[in-house]
C-alpha cells in the first residue's frame, strides 16, 4: 500500500532554503550535490544512503499525485510511494528531479529535471541496530 501524499510540499524544497549538512556546513537546497548526502550519511553513523531505482510511475486516484515504485538497495526491496507530481527526488548524476518539473519550478522555484523510469534516486535507510 503506498504512503499517502501530504497536501503540500515541505518548506525545505523551496529554492534558497538553508540546509545543514552533518559536518555543520550550510548550503542552499539548489546547491546540494550527491557527495553532500553521501558524506553526511557517513558522518551520521546511523543512516545509510541507498540507491533507489525508479521502476514504475503510475497515475494515482488522488488528483495531482503519482504512485512511484522503487527498487531499493542491494536487496532490491520493492517500495511504492504516492507523492504529488511536483515532489522532488535527488537523482545521482542529475540532481533534483520530479514527475512534473514545470510545476516544481512554478511552486518552489527549484530547478528540476524530469524523473523517469530507470533513474537512480538517493534514499535513506537506518543502519541495523545491534
Amino acid at each position: 500500500t503506498p504512503l499517502s501524499p501530504s497536501s503540500a510540499l515541505p518548506p525545505y524544497f523551496m529554492k534558497g532554503s538553508i540546509i545543514q549538512l552533518a559536518d555543520g556546513e550550510l548550503k542552499r537546497v539548489e546547491d546540494l550535490r550527491a557527495e553532500d548526502f553521501l558524506q553526511s550519511a557517513d558522518l551520521s553513523g546511523e543512516l545509510k544512503i541507498d540507491s533507489s531505482t525508479v521502476e514504475r510511475i503510475d497515475s494515482s486516484r488522488t488528483p495531482d499525485a503519482v504512485i512511484i515504485q522503487f527498487s531499493v538497495g542491494e536487496h532490491k526491496t520493492q517500495v511504492c510511494v504516492e507523492v504529488l507530481v511536483e515532489y522532488p527526488f535527488f537523482v545521482f548524476g542529475q540532481g533534483w528531479s520530479s514527475c512534473c518539473p514545470h510545476r516544481t519550478t512554478q511552486l518552489l522555484a527549484l530547478s528540476c529535471a524530469r524523473l523517469s523510469v530507470g533513474d537512480v534516486c538517493i534514499s535513506l535507510t537506518l543502519k541495523s541496530l545491534r
Binding site: 532554503s17 538553508i18 545543514q20 552533518a22 534514499s123 535513506l124
Partner: peptide, 25 residues
C-alpha cells in the same frame, strides 16, 4: 524597529525519503 527574522535551517536528512524498511539480519 524591525525585528530580525531568523532564517530556518533544515537538517540534510529531511530532504531524503526513507524508502526501505530496516533489514533485520
Amino acid at each position: 524597529n524591525v525585528e530580525p527574522r531568523s532564517v530556518p535551517v533544515f537538517p540534510w536528512h529531511s530532504l531524503v525519503p526513507f524508502l526501505a524498511p530496516t533489514q533485520s539480519d
